[in-house]
Amino acid sequence: MNSIFLPYKMGDLWEVKQKDPEAIILAGGTGLLVFLREKGLHPHTIVGLENLWELKQIEMQNGEIRIGAMVTHQQLLESPVIQAQLPGLHQAVTVLGYPPIRHMGTIGGNICTASPAGDTLPSLYVLNAVAELRTPTASRLLPIQDLIKGPGQNVLGRDEILYQIRIPVPSPSAVSFYFKVGQRKALAISVCSLASMLQVAEDEQTIVDCRFAWGSVGPTIMRFPGLEKNLIGEKLSLNKLREFGQTAASMVSPITDIRGSAEYRRMLVSNLPSKMLQTL
């Protein structure tokens, strides 16, 4: 028989974890339950975070937006803070799954799943998000890219959970995007995605800052800070974006899977930056 715990207090959570260090964390379950069914696993202890209200908050503090690990995608979608301050992340959750999944699935689950196709991740990468991890006794801060190690792999310790995500509020003049290419418009795992943030000077042309992060084309989210730097000071144009995309495409080695070939993915890496001009 397996046991399922749904603690109301952090203390109770740690107690369960102490008794059974193998206890599996359940957030919304939209990733975990699929995984368990697929592998035919029947874990002994499952501990759900759904009653821990402190994990379900979205707050602005000290120029930072703090998103609790148990904040659902639907909450992000409806949050005025996210809508106003983090439009790229907001766009990402509009194309994540479909309504039932958005109501159950959480940002913490999306991050811990560490899938290169995770839809919130590219935006979190370009936002320079920082994850706060907690154990019964300590907490630590890790940049998002240091939390995620590879496909399905994060650096969480045995008795550690993802507590919240902290995002520095971006400059008000920055524009951000999220483009997702899936096999259909809803309920689709991304074949390639791109989050970007762009700041142009007052001439509305010269690039002052830019960040790009691609999903589903490598073991984790792919960012090329060196390439980004090359764009700074340049004039925003289709040619520049094309050239930039092509260079990025030459630096990724995507895989071929049931959803798309490596060749197609590479073309998308190259083309997606130009999409900004479709939207701007």
């Binding site: 479909y98 096999q183 259909r184 418009k185 809803a186 309920l187 795992i189 049931i258 959803r259």
Partner: peptide
């Protein structure tokens, strides 16, 4: 394409 995750049926959005 072993199940509905990889066999792509149109949704109402499509």
């Amino acid at each position: 394409t072993r199940n509905l995750a990889s066999y792509i049926l149109p949704t109402s959005m499509d």
